[in-house]
Design a binder for these strands. Sequence first.
DNA 1: ACGTCCACTTAGCAATTAGCAT
DNA 2: ATGCTAATTGCTAAGTGGACGT
Length: 773
Amino acid sequence: MSGDHGERDSQVNSGSRANDAHKHKDKHKEHRRKEHKKDKEREKAKHSNSEHREHSEKKHRDKEKERLKHSDGSVDRHREKPKEKDKEKRREEKVKSFHVEGKPKKEKENGHAREMWNSLSPPDIKSEPEEDNGLYPSPKHNKTLKRERDEEEFEYKPKKIKTENGKKAKKRKQEYEDEEEEEEDIKPKKKTKDKKSGADGKKAKETEEKWKWWEEERSTDGSKWKFLEHKGPVLAPPYEPLPGHVRFFYDGKLLRLSAPAEEVATFFAKMLDHEYTTKDMFRKNFYKDWRKEMTSEEKSKITDINKCNFTEMSEYFKAQSEARKQMSKDEKLKIKEENERILQEYGFCVMDNHKERIGNFRIEPPGLFRGRGDHPKMGMLKRRIRPEDIIINCSKDSKHPKPPQGMRWKEVRHDNKVTWLVSWTENIQGSIKYIMLNPSSRIKGEKDWQKYETARRLKKCVDRLRAQYREDWKSKEMRVRQRAVALYFIDKLALRAGNEKEEGETADTVGCCSLRVEHIKLYPKMDDQEYVVEFDFLGKDSIRYYNKMPVEKRVFKNLQLFLENKQPEDDLFDRLNTSILNKHLQELMDGLTAKVFRTYNASITLQQQLKELTSPDESIPAKILSYNRANRAVAILCNHQRAAPKTFEKSMQNLQTKIDEKQKQLSATRKQLKGAKTEHKASHDDRSKKMVEVKRKAVQRIEEQLMKLQMQATDREENKQIALGTSKLNYLDPRISVAWVKKWDVPIEKIYNKTQREKFAWAIDMAEEDYEF
DNA sequence: ACGTCCACTTAGCAATTAGCAT
DNA sequence: ATGCTAATTGCTAAGTGGACGT
């Protein structure tokens, strides 16, 4: 059956070179189809009970949702279902949920923003341009990129002095020409260097504080650093056996566990009140791995996880954490100091003469793997990492970190083509984990900056690209049409690329290229709209993406074509994958890949929304609300969701109470003002005049406070299930925000907290109020 | 023209801490 | 000081995409 649609593409006349991409895919498909069948059967068997439970759970959720007005469902989050992987079930549930929530009334912020987006984006190519131009009235144009050129030589390790140089500047400029061609401001700007000494790393402290790496030159030879020295990772503390009074019971009888078995048992015990310890898959995986740690005696005694009683352990840990909270202040202080000491010792490294903060310097401790969504490996034991599992990366001529007494590292290497300091292989997926630098570091910052420059280059040619993919919708080749439609989705809906994943190894989630037939529905007509496509699938982290969007007729027709003769579990784009797509993109623009569209669309949307929403004379809090709304539009576009905070309702209520009180206070004060006025009229003396002034001021102040509270309430309400952080941190060119802040005199702290300010120091330093993305 | 490995970015939630009201 | 909530930081899973070997 895998061959069955190979021929189909002859329809569009491409037949022959049925590239192997799709052969490969068919293999997957076949597998999936089998699974599908199996699931179906299984499903039939159990149908009644479990299905039922889910069903009502879901219903409940839907109701809740409806009540909250997020009825268009786009924000709805949809975590995996409990049961064992059961695709069929998932499918059915979706259908149901569609009926329930599909119909919605008017949407709230959410749908709203999406709609707005839908209407402003690509479809009409025409409309694009203005986006590009007119944004900021008086672009003085340029500055923004000032920094780059100029630079001094970077002296690495030893203290040499940098050679200054015009030539350098020249080089750099040309190198990045593409990226930032427009402005010329080539002339070297001030350079702040802190050349300083490499030698005494000490002094680095203050000087480094403000190192402006963005005013220095980037290296061009592909090396990521010249010198790197660090202290290695902090290992997980060894296991401490439980005190004797904490008991474990098996089948009602006391059982003393060996230390290794006990340790794994405690991992489970610590999660006892978490929902996933009730999931079959979790328990099964845990049990299987646990047995591997047992002595043979334990193995023979413990044969059924359901007879295990971990409650004393669980209670013990709860008590421990309670005790920790109750510790006296100086005990706490002591711990804090100790942590600080560790941070100072292990939390920094020296890279090319600068002391830089490390992101994660602790090795992940052992525990039970918690995958997200319906993960087939949930509950497996994540094993303890020992020095002999660890690879150290540092300069040959640095002081190498030393392994603990009597142990050795797996390897010490000196690879300056990579940025990591430490790595190890994790046992669940076999993937490699790394210790790398903090986002405020030069090495991360440069890359981040570069990412936005690439997105800005896309901005310059996006019209051309859009015109091209629209043209490609008419191609004779199936493969080209698929590519063009997929690209349209990526551009318009900000979908992720969608690499293929190994089946059965991870939760079943998809992105654009890996969408399956079952993930979309076509409606030639829906309400007053034509050619509506409904998307419903689980994306990264098993977050549900649900959206309905009218598309152009040609796209719609193409989708119908792609769907012909396919099963629900077949790939929608059977002749496409991310590598093909990216290869194509690369040809259209240097450095272009699918993810650049997300960055570009996110940033341009922010800029555009800020422009639209900010009114010059609103107060600062109102401006902040506008900013958050612009940010929110982006988060919605990118489908960044969060679980509504547990305490949401309550905190909302508290806020409302405050507002009510403030309102009362306001009317009371107003009354007083009136009284004062009357009195002043009568007496005309200074005293009463003063009183009027005082009251007038008070009224004003209270009004402001009230407004501020109201803004806060609105903001919070609108933000209930939207996470702003992800887009702010990863998709929005920080220079847009910085420019906005400068333009409207909003304190930067209102937009970026300390960590964020550190990460975006480069942008804060270089963007002026006229910066244009 | 893969498939596999590797490096690095992006992601949501949990734990911790800060900040406020009492 | 205490106790709460809100904000921040930490953690690590889950993506993307390039390089490389076959």
